[in-house]
């Protein structure tokens, strides 16, 4: 079953002559364990697609299903609960709360969801440990490097039983080594069964995905074919 399914989703802003079609008839399904990258230039609708997939914004028409639940039919509270329990977000600028330590930042969504402080803390520490950040658990965001902050943000996005990870330009201003580290973590989360959607204009990040969907002027114009094995590259050698 698809963890995320978007059916003929459109989003229009403004009215009359000022009408802008940010998204038009988007169909997108992402299964458990799969990573889909959405590539497109600025203004192509990438971020709108992600906020609608994450129930942070309503589509003008069409349906969005997360873990089989149709979002438009849900009450505000039910949507908020779904966001806390099932969806993790990673943004370009990390969005960590500066007054909380790394461990507290990671544990926060669980606590908000009613998990006891102690259990949330243990789960937060485990998530940090998996990402190689155990020794930074007590540090505040301003004491962490950019790469570490983004790893904390990923730990927060996958803590608990999240099934859908939504990432908007997750490597942001990080250098290529740290950017690769971020993609490795998202990839690892997918191997554990999480479904991920990464929107980016960066082909190197997108190339970590199982499938790359190309967006232009609010429409899906194309997508990659299934990735063949590496044999064809290794036996041929470059430049031949």
């Amino acid at each position: 079953m698809s963890v995320l399914e978007m059916r003929r989703v459109s989003r229009t802003y403004g009215l009359g002559a000022a009408e802008v079609h940010a998204l038009q008839n988007i169909d997108l399904a992402v299964d458990a364990g799969a990573m889909v990258a959405v590539m497109g230039p600025s203004g192509s609708g990438k971020s709108t697609l992600l906020t609608i997939a994450g129930s942070l914004e309503e589509p003008s028409s069409g349906e969005v299903l997360v873990c089989g639940e149709e979002l438009t039919g849900l009450s505000r509270n039910a949507k908020a609960r779904l966001r806390r329990r099932s969806i993790g977000y990673v943004f370009q600028d990390f969005n960590l709360l500066p007054g909380l330590t790394a461990a507290e930042n990671v544990a926060l969504p669980l606590e908000l969801d009613g998990v006891s402080a102690r259990k949330a803390r243990v789960a937060g520490l485990n998530a940090l440990e998996e990402l190689g950040l155990a020794e930074r658990a007590a540090s505040f965001p301003d004491q962490l490097s950019g790469g570490e902050r983004q790893r904390v943000a990923i730990a927060r996005a996958v803590v608990g039983e999240r099934q859908l990870l939504l990432a908007d330009e997750p490597s942001g201003a990080l250098d290529s080594v740290n950017g690769e580290g971020v993609m490795r973590l998202i990839h690892a989360a997918c191997k554990r069964g999480v479904a991920a959607v990464v929107v980016t204009h960066d082909a190197q990040l997108a190339s970590w995905a199982d499938r790359v969907v190309f967006l232009r002027d609010g429409r899906v114009t194309d997508q990659t074919l299934p990735v063949p094995g590496p044999e064809s590259l290794l036996t041929r050698g470059p430049g031949q």
Binding site: R184, G229, P230
Partner: peptide, 19 residues
């Protein structure tokens, strides 16, 4: 777009090797 898709597919293959 035809060329972009081809190149991104190649990059996916190389990234698999890296991974």
């Amino acid at each position: 777009q035809v060329h972009r898709r081809y190149l991104v597919q190649l990059m996916q293959q190389w990234t698999r090797i890296k991974d």
